[in-house]
Design a protein around this nucleic acid. Structure first.
Length: 870
RNA sequence: GGGGGAUUAGCUCAAUUGGGAGAGCGUCUGGCUGGCAGCCAGAAGGUCAGGGGUUCGAAUCCCCUAUCCUCCA
């Protein structure tokens, strides 16, 4: 059975059992802060399981794309580890339970018109205390008791070991189905999780039955395919083997499964599949979070290629193969495959450059090792190369081996652990976090948002949260920590879609609450701020007033963002899609995909088009409509974005259509003015434009005019001649600096100094006051004298800016005789209250007593005579 | 978000304990020369990322800022 057929069969089977077939969630669930990537089929149903949302269906089935990096080191080595994989699942939210889940799993696996697997090849595990599951398997299904194993909480409980270790919250036993492979090993193909308990505190008696029990099951697509297709590895199934073979092709090697290179090819195939999906969803390789995971996967794959002898970028040729293999379930991959390839290629090149840069350092490292007679690369050195310069240890080990050098892996790991400690482990959000809002979520869907049409409205207080807990009344005026007020309906916009939250006030009879920020969570608007006056009670009716001028500025900035987005698409191309944005009062930041810096000229064109559209006063409208209709209308949609079934489409007629929940002007003319003030790179492949609108744009122009006027005033020229005059002044300054005489000023030229030189035993001695010269001029003078005569000893001194500067130099012969300019100058420096030093042939010193310079020079004259005599 | 590193001529990079800013390539000029990076001689080209501090003296040491690289979460 082909993978495509298995996927379809599974979904069709559970549809026939009343499950609603839902599409796979995105691979990168930006809505879920607790995970970077979708780790399992149930992820998109978290809120359903917790009863946190209104259920439109109570049974579902999906084929979910997943990514996990926990077992990354095993990928390619074992037959069944992946980073990217697909999980078939069926789910019940308080609907069917253990009995149906088990019966249906068995039916799908063994029924003749479904998978038709011989029952004797299957075995079962259940949780040790789960007699109910055991009984269903043994009595109702008829599995021989010998083939049902009771396992402990670390294997057959979800979350693993929850009863004794925690965490508190929903949990339950699970039951796994294994298949006996031709080689005799048993492979888990299906895990049924029965969430039926709420854990409270440590054992005993800490598992309380849930009133509403859930089913969460997962069947690995790849391993089930391997079973059905009778192949020994997941990598040899119909949708993976061609990718592995393609890796061989682009690397110029034949795929031989049992070799080291075979292992590498499988790993490359896995990683490129994962990255193709992730980049498709606009996750670019980068330095943090999911971006970093993509980068690391790519680099591991490139390194594997390099270890096989490939020296040029090759990975970027593989996404088309991935797209072809995954075409049936994910046809959208084909639309971005070119862009994905480009992103991969850039990262490959960047990594190769990193390696090249590191090779230099490696040579030095080997030289040091050779000198000290060692034959092993120290773990600390390897870790430094890795953490600082990104040079992979595996490659370093290979290079070391070529020089008969060992590699200290233990030391390396120890150093890396220390590095991890130093950089600090971040705290992960709990998978099932609970908060004070949960109680509210069970009774209400959220706050009604009125802010599209109004900025003032009455609402009822349905929640007050202080110190992370719900409370009934708020009395303390002047509390330090902000509190949160939840209303049933409100004109306040909670931060989302990049637009920051509203500010304003809540007023009621005898009371005022100042709102400094508005956030949103699960459909509720959270008014964050401080009680200023009176007492606020739960259930009270308040008048919510959004700060009008700020809201107007936010609307201008948000609408300008849409105009900018459209202009970027127009001038740069369709690839320039939004990556993120921040909309603040008359200020916006817009990140988008684009590979290179945008020239001033193009930037001017973009700004020009946006402002033209402002002048044209295009009408802005918004309406709710089904997703499919919006797509048909040509609204801009982002890959990897999860949209609800009904969306809000903001239309600027003839200019842009975007799905957007933000607040907008009613006509683009209200924006007034848009000024791009910055264009920069945020990470490879992403650019950021910052712009100001309305009042802020005007301020900026005014500010600039003032600055220019001030500068022109300082140069005493009309504004129009500013640039010209400035260039001339800078040039003049440079010329002046350059023209500084090499000779010591104060009348004496080098020739005159030479003529006045003493002769001490055949050596010329020049000691003079080089009035007003700086150190550089005196140095040049000494250089000149040394070229004109030798042997010669010169010491010049001068006073500038309340300080004495001395410079001394001697010619080579004197240096060879053991004299030192440094020694010479020290005594003289001491007299003027300073210190100094330098090299034997040239030294420099300074001091504070400006009136003692003649004395110092006299002393220097005597000193050099003594030195020459010695 | 945290750790490490980098920023010097148009490009690639040097500069020892703090003591005169350099090399190769490229550019320009002159000369030689049929040869795949032709040779020789010479020249121009620098805010040592920016700002502050320590010091007689900072590319070098300390602090701040910006940008880039890199590892970790």
């Amino acid at each position: 059975m082909k993978a495509d057929d298995l996927r379809e069969a599974y979904l069709a089977f559970f549809e026939s059992k009343g499950c609603v077939r839902r599409p796979s969630d995105v691979l990168v669930p930006r809505w879920d802060p607790s995970v970077l990537f979708t780790p399992a089929g149930m992820n998109q149903f978290k809120d359903h399981f917790l009863g946190k949302c209104k259920l439109e269906f109570t049974r579902a089935t999906t084929c979910q794309k997943c990514l996990r990096t926990g077992d990354i080191d095993n990928v390619g080595r074992t037959p069944r580890h992946h980073t990217f994989f697909e999980m078939l699942g069926n789910f019940s939210f308080g609907d069917y339970f253990k009995r149906e889940a088990i019966h249906w799993a068995w039916e799908f696996l063994t029924a003749r018109n479904w998978l038709n697997i011989a029952p004797e090849k299957l075995s079962i595990t259940v949780y040790q205390d789960d007699d109910e599951a055991f009984r269903i398997w043994a009595d109702e299904i008829g599995v021989p008791a010998a083939k049902i194993t009771r396992m402990g909480e670390d294997d057959n409980f979800w979350p693993a070991s929850a009863p004794s270790q925690g965490p508190d919250g929903v949990c339950g036993p699970c039951s796994e189905i294994f298949y006996r492979m031709p080689d005799g090993s048993d492979v888990e193909i299906w895990n049924l999780v029965f969430t039926q308990f709420n854990r409270v505190g440590p054992p005993p008696d800490n598992l309380h039955p849930l009133p509403s029990r859930n089913i969460d099951t997962g069947m690995g697509l790849e391993r089930t395919c391997a079973m059905l297709q009778g192949v020994d590895s997941n990598f040899h199934i119909d949708i993976l083997r061609p990718i592995v073979e393609a890796v061989g092709e682009v690397c110029g090697k034949k795929y031989e499964p049992a070799t080291d290179d075979g292992r590498r090819m499988r790993r490359i195939a896995d990683h490129v599949r994962a990255c193709t999906f992730a980049i498709h969803e606009n996750v670019m390789p980068g330095n943090n979070e999911e971006k970093y995971v993509v980068k690391r996967l790519l680099r591991r794959a490139v390194l594997d290629g390099r270890q096989m002898g490939v020296r040029d970028p090759f990975l970027h040729r593989l996404p088309p193969v991935v797209a072809e293999m995954m075409r049936k379930p994910y046809p959208e991959l084909a639309d971005t495959v070119e862009r994905v390839g480009g992103v991969i290629k850039r990262e490959e090149e960047s990594f190769l450059a990193t390696i090249d840069g590191g090779l230099d350092r490696i040579e030095k490292l080997f030289a040091t090792i050779g000198r000290s007679g060692g034959a092993v690369v120290a773990g600390g050195d390897a870790a430094e190369l890795y953490t600082t310069y990104g040079f992979p240890p595996e490659l370093l080990e290979t290079l070391a081996a070529e020089r008969n050098c060992g590699f200290d892996w233990d030391g390396f790991r120890a150093a890396m652990e220390e590095h991890g400690l130093k950089s600090g482990a971040g705290t992960r959000v709990e998978v099932f976090s609970s908060g004070p809002l949960d109680a509210l979520k069970k009774t209400m869907h959220g706050s009604e948002f009125l802010g599209y049409d109004a900025i003032t409205a009455d609402g009822k207080v349905i929640g007050i949260i202080a110190q992370d807990a719900l409370c009934d009344r708020l009395t303390e005026v002047g509390h330090a920590k902000p509190v949160t007020v939840v209303l049933d309906r409100t004109p306040f916009y909670g931060e989302s879609g990049g637009q920051v939250g509203d500010t304003g006030t809540l007023v009621w009879d005898g009371g005022v609450f100042e709102v400094t920020d508005t956030q949103r969570e699960g459909g509720f608007m959270l008014h964050v701020g401080h009680l200023k006056q009176g007492t606020l009670d739960l259930g009270a009716t308040v008048t919510a007033e959004v700060e009008a001028t700020r809201r107007a500025a936010l609307r201008r900035a948000h609408s300008a963002t849409h105009l900018l987005h459209a202009a970027l698409q127009h001038f740069l191309g369709g690839h320039a899609v939004q990556q993120g944005s921040k909309v603040d009062a008359d200020m916006l930041r817009f990140d988008f995909s684009h590979g290179a810096a945008i020239g001033r000229e193009t930037l001017d064109k973009i700004e020009g088009q946006v402002n033209t559209q402002v002048l044209e006063s295009v009408a802005v409208s918004a309406r709710l409509l089904p997703l499919s209709e919006a797509r048909h209308a040509g609204a801009m949609m982002l890959f990897g974005e999860k949209y609800p079934d009904v969306v809000r489409m903001v239309t600027m007629e003839g200019v842009s259509r975007e799905l957007c929940g933000g607040t907008h002007v009613s006509s683009t003319g209200q924006i007034g003015l848009v000024r791009i003030v910055g264009e920069e790179s945020v990470s490879a492949g992403t650019r950021r434009i910052t712009a100001v609108t309305g009042a802020k744009a005007l301020d900026r122009f005014r500010q600039a005019e003032h600055t220019i006027a001030e500068a022109a005033g300082a140069l005493k020229v009309p504004v129009g001649e500013l640039a010209q005059r400035l260039t001339a002044v800078v040039k003049e300054l440079r010329d002046l600096k350059k023209a500084k005489p090499a000779a010591a000023p104060g009348g004496a030229t080098p020739d005159e100094l030479l003529a006045a030189a003493l002769d001490v035993g055949g050596t010329r001695v020049v000691v003079a006051d080089a009035k007003g010269s700086d150190a550089g001029a005196m140095r040049q003078c000494i250089d000149l004298l040394r070229r004109k005569a030798s042997p010669i000893a010169v010491l010049l001194g001068s006073v500038e800016a309340d300080k004495v500067t001395l410079v001394a130099g001697i010619s080579r012969e004197l240096e060879e005789r053991g004299l030192s300019a440094g020694t010479w100058i020290k005594d003289a420096a001491a007299i003027v209250g300073g210190k100094g030093g330098g090299r034997p042939d040239l030294a420099q010193a300074g001091g504070k007593f400006v009136d003692k310079l003649p004395e110092a020079l006299a002393a220097a004259r005597q000193a050099i005579e003594r030195m020459l005599d010695a």
